[in-house]
Design a protein around this nucleic acid. Structure first.
Lengths: 365, 365
DNA sequence: GCTTGACGCGGACAGGTGTCCGCACTCCTT
DNA sequence: AAGGAGTGCGGACACCTGTCCGCGTCAAGC
């Protein structure tokens, strides 16, 4: 009775072909459709023997009620739409993985699409047609496009949350406080005696209180230093294509200059690792000759030598906050104003940062 | 008329709240439900003016027919269930990303779940209840569990394909020919004069013609060499936890031995990079003193110095073949016998492999 | 002004589900 | 043996859609 799970289904069975509805299933069991339905939904007033009969047939045939019909009857779809910028950014993938796990544990399934420029309308329409209960955006997008989509979602009463893209109008947002991250990095370096800093891809973006540059400037000013003179850059000289190569080129660019900062701030870990190789190739000993930091705390930070000082994104917390924010909206009337939460990152000290050399090549300081 | 996309919806509009059905939408437009339906489905016999009226309202309200009701009417769900082993393995994530893109381009959406041991039944049941059109498995799973799930899918006439897990009974499979990959690696190293090889995590798994060890042995035998004497291992001495650390530990393990092979075969890129650091920390110059290879051709291969010689998985082809195999099953009766396809990988030569030193520490050869 | 064709309306059905309700059968109890 | 509780049956409805069909309406052509 139990071990009868033969693999491809016996050839000449009385096989009810494939059971596709409760009606067929009931016929197969020899009961009325309503009776089966009552068993499936745990209603009282049924003999234990009958219940067992249905359960057994259920296990044997693997029949499952049609989720679409259930939804039509008013049951929630328990589907969450997730829009990814791409699958190529490791931290974004980690957020997706974490989010999927969290949603799963709360009984939701994840419908994942890539939200490429121009396809946004289509993607969101598709989610709407499937009546997803909410939509999550992970990454950075074209502001006008995502704002339009969020407006559409709001018009339909579909909750949403944006992870990482800060400053969108009308958007519930959870994002890392990158300023705090850079401030921690700067304080670490300043404590080590560094006074001149090279930017590796960190540029002034749309100014905001949580943007990287804001944290750098705040840390410098807090010690009475002038950001204009302390922070150097050769970013404009190089094209950003592959981050690793970009980092190496930036390092070479700095080395070609007259004045060399004592510390370098990588926009992310790949760029920092690229610069690490650039410096090492030039014969410098990183940490002793120059200090170097990354951002994101990816696996690669531990896979280089010395290990990279970097900033951890606190992805678990980010996703937990985002999920809470999202699910809290499900059974409530839409909020009047969007909610914005920032997450504090954490400095991870590795082997690429050390005390500033008393006298570098002369920094004009 | 067109620019009226105000963001949070005007406060005191005559707002038809949220339009959830064609009936409501039709009422909003001022037409009969059937008329609207005809417009939506492009049926003839309608005045252009009427069509325009509906289209305009459609654009304004963003109404979308309920996909679940459509499916109930017989329309295909166009959903594919994807079971991932995890999100932590970069090559697996790249396969997922590629597959998602390919499926999207063919009009299918991806429902992604993690197929953790013990949860398989639940996951597949969930897919079945949503009436997905097919299921893809990416990664390695418990053989009995996945075989049972595939049998269930087959019983319901749901097509499937397994990517990467070779040797499952009754499973349509697309997998990399790892033996061919290792054979290419070995021929490359043999051509460079190497005769003794250290295994970095490559063990004899379930023997099959496409398993790594088979390729190593084939290459050695083709040159009249004895695998038993040429291939050395200290794998058993160390615990495999974090691959990078494992690789470094293995390198240290070999260095502690009396005889040092001239070439080392990494089970994957992380292990190889770990070993690279291990060797470099011991003062060896990789490529000159020892050669080293990885597997998978991840980004990290170019981010170490020297760049890692490795094997590319040909992920694009793998996924294309898998998708074709999957979609070909959609409109056809189930095959009697499962289809198994193997993909040829490609050697990528980097800077970690070089000519064998004429006289190593003595290899007993 | 009348005929005719074009066009929109509204009722009906199917698809799978859960639930309600009246009915009939079975089996136990007295 | 008869009453009654327990239990299963089957019809009906709603959910939302696409489609068919008969009917009403309106405008154009003569």
């Amino acid at each position: 009775m139990v071990g009868k799970l033969s693999v491809p289904a016996p050839r000449q069975a009385k096989a009810p072909a494939v059971i596709r509805s409760t009606a067929e299933f009931a016929r197969h069991v020899g009961l009325a459709r309503t009776t089966v339905s009552r068993v499936l939904n745990g209603q009282p007033g049924l003999k234990q023997k009958t219940i067992d009969r249905v359960q057994r047939a259920l296990a044997e045939t693997g029949f499952t009620p049609n989720a679409h019909a259930l939804h039509l009857k008013g049951k929630r779809t328990s589907m969450i739409g997730i829009c990814m910028e791409d699958f190529a950014t490791p931290p974004a993938v980690r957020k997706l993985a974490t989010l999927q796990r969290v949603l799963r544990s709360r009984g939701f399934s994840s419908l994942i699409e890539v939200f490429a420029p121009g396809t946004g309308r289509e993607v969101v329409r598709h989610f709407q047609s499937l009546r997803v209960e909410a939509v999550v955006f992970i990454g950075h997008f074209l502001p006008e496009e995502i704002e339009a989509r969020i407006a559409e979602l709001a018009a339909h009463g579909t909750p949403h949350v944006v992870i990482d893209h800060y400053g969108l109008k009308g958007a519930n947002t959870v994002t890392l406080d990158r300023a705090a991250g850079m401030e921690a990095v700067m304080n670490h370096l300043l404590d080590l005696g560094h006074r001149t800093f090279g930017s590796l891809g960190i540029t002034k973006g749309r100014p905001s209180r949580i943007e990287r540059m804001a944290g750098i400037q705040a840390a410098l000013r807090a010690r009475g230093l002038d950001p204009e003179r302390c922070l150097l850059s050769v970013d404009h000289l190089h094209e950003r294509n592959v981050d690793f190569d970009y980092g190496r080129n930036l390092a070479a660019g700095f080395l070609a200059q007259r004045e060399l900062p004592t510390a370098f701030l990588g926009h992310n870990d790949e760029i920092a690792v690229g610069a690490l190789h650039g410096f090492q190739a030039a014969g410098l000993k990183v940490a002793r000759d120059v200090s170097l930091t990354g951002f994101n705390h990816q696996d690669i930070c531990r896979m280089v030598s010395p290990t990279l000082t970097t900033v951890d994104q606190n992805i678990e917390e980010t996703v937990a906050v985002a999920a809470d924010l999202l699910l809290a909206q499900l059974d409530q009337p839409p909020r009047a104003r969007p909610v914005v939460r920032t997450i504090k990152p954490q400095l991870v000290i590795g082997g690429t940062t050390g005390a500033a050399r008393p006298s570098s090549r002369g920094s004009g300081f």
